[in-house]
Structures are given as C-alpha cells and as structure tokens.
Nucleic acid binder design. Structure first.
Lengths: 159, 159
DNA sequence: ATGTCATAGACAACAAGGTTGTCGAAATAG
DNA sequence: CTATTTCGACAACCTTGTTGTCTATGACAT
C-alpha cells in the first residue's frame, strides 16, 4: 500500500517518539526522574568536547544563552561541574560528573535494549537495512535538538 | 555496522526533521510563510471532524486551552472560521476555510514530492519495506504532536 | 604598548507553546 | 427543578527558546 508522504513523516516521528518515551520512562523507573533526552544529548556533547557554554550551543544548534540554561540545570542536579579554565579566564570548563556518566551509561543501555526489541520484532537484517537506508536519506545532520518542547518535557502519554 | 539504539533514535528523528524542515521551507517559498506543521496537523484534525476546541484538544492530545490558542492563530490568519453551533450554544463550530484547504493541499503535495525523492534515492521496494517495518514497530499511535516546540517554531537550519 | 575586534558568559526582556485552575453559560441526567 | 458535565474563555505560571546588551578577557595588528 503506497503511503502518503505525510504518513511517512508521521511514521518517522512516531518511531522516534516511542523510543524516546520508552527510554524516558525507563530512566525514571531506574531512579533518574529528572533526566530528559535533552540532558542526555547535552552531556554527550560535553563529553565529546563541547566543554564550554558557547561551544555547546554551537553543537546543539541553539543560542549560547539557551545552552547556558541547560547547563545550569545540569549543574544544579549534579550531572555536570564547572571550573575556571586556567588558559582562558573567560571560559568555564565543563565536566560531566560521575553521576552524569552513570546516567549516560544507563541511557545507552536502555536505548540498546529498545533496539534489540525492535530487532526481535522485525528481524536483524530488516532493522539493519532500515537503518542503512535511513542513514542514506538523512545523511550526517548536526544534532539539532532545537526547541525541545516535547523532547525535554515530561512525556506523559501511554504511547 | 551495528548501530547503537541511540543512533537509531537520532536517525528516526533526523528523518522526520529533514522532511518537516523541507516541507516547511517549501511552503514558505510558495507564499505560506506563517504556516507551521502544527497548523497543518490541526487543520487536518478539524477536517477530520474535530470541529470544536475541546475535541481538537483531545485529538491532538493537548489541553483544550492549548487547542484554543492554536485555533486563535489559525483564525487570525484566515485558515479556519468559527460560527456558533445552532444545536449547542456552548460550542463554536470550526470550519477550515478555502485558504486553509489550499494550504492543506499544498502541504500534501509537498510531502508526496519529498517521498518521491526518497523513493528515487533508495528504491521503491526499499522505501516500502522501510514504511512497512516502521508501521509494525510503531503501531497506530495517536497524533500526539505534543509540545511542538521545534515543530511549530521556525526551523532555521540548513538541515 | 596600545587600540581594535572577537568571544565567553551573565542578565534582562520577551515570544511561543503548554499546563492547571476557575468561572459562567448551556446541555443533560435524575 | 436540581445536580453534574461540558464548552469556551481568562488568568497565572512553567519551560525552552530568542535577541539584545554588558563586562571581562583574549587575539592581533599597528
């Protein structure tokens, strides 16, 4: 059955959402109730080298002010720490704390489990092909979480 | 190459985003600069029978107040009209205007064109299989656009 | 050395979208 | 006729983002 282009878009969104919702719920179940996908992505970016607010903003494609707000939350909750940069007094160096890494680790394993479930549902080869094709179509896009309203927000639904 | 679960999620999100961004940009190019995906979805829901604010809220899984705000915008821009319901004086019946339908029509064709492009890139059978598998995995989820921060917002990036 | 420009981070003001709570009017159940 | 529910509106507030402005610091050219 030939679906419409709009359906395809919804399908993609739905796929992401079910993964993200499930991960968020599971993370909450494991005790990290205040962690949302944005936080996870931000910590990943920090780990990957975005060790100051301006740089984090660039990596996430948001303003540095927005990045600073996210950092403030992360810091408040003990997931990242900041200290001054000895080489550049303007900068505050960011570091993911042990607690932060713990969340990152759990998040990863949750997503991997979710992927395994999908694999069992449609088959290893099928999922691999789906990923390959999607990767071809999407290319390497910057993270671009953007205004993560529903990504960041508490996702209530049963979906 | 076995990707991680998180990558899969990002791929899905990326797929949706590239479609949505392209559609939004093309719609703007065609002169509908103030239409965002949420508006499109809302109009679709209205056409599909959600002819009052409360019902629209239910269909979109948002509060009726949020739905009312969306309606206000849509009305302001002339995409929907409201009149009183002769059968129930509490209700304001919603109707998509001719202009609204025009946008809907254009949006559909844009998404279809985008899908065609994808089909040419990876092959008809491949795209169909991708859709089928995704549909299996996702199931029938309610629209649930949720807090459409970046869906609703003006998507600036080149992505 | 010094003047100029770019960058980091902080603060303020504001926009968009959503939420809950409240309320009056109208429909409906008993 | 009364009690409950539903609709739409309003207000207050949250979250995440944005732009603009400001100071301190660094980089660089003169």
């Amino acid at each position: 059955m030939p679906r419409s282009g709009a359906d395809l878009a919804l399908l993609l969104l739905g796929g992401f959402r079910s993964l993200a919702d499930a991960a968020h719920a599971e993370l909450a179940r494991r005790g990290y109730e205040d962690v949302r996908p944005v936080h996870d992505f931000a910590m990943r970016a920090i780990t990957a080298g975005a060790d100051n607010a301006s740089e984090l903003g660039r990596r996430l494609s948001v303003s540095k002010q927005a990045a600073a707000k996210t950092i403030a939350v992360l810091q408040e909750r003990g997931y990242v720490a900041r200290d001054t940069d000895p080489l550049d007094a303007r900068r505050k160096r960011l570091q993911v704390t042990a607690l932060g890494f713990e969340v990152l680790r759990q998040g990863e394993s949750i997503f991997d489990e979710l992927r395994d479930q999908w694999e069992r549902q449609i088959g290893t080869a099928e999922l691999a092909s789906l990923e390959t094709h999607l990767a071809t179509l999407v290319g390497a896009l910057p993270v671009r979480l953007d205004a993560p309203g529903w990504i960041a927000h508490d996702l209530g639904g049963p979906a």
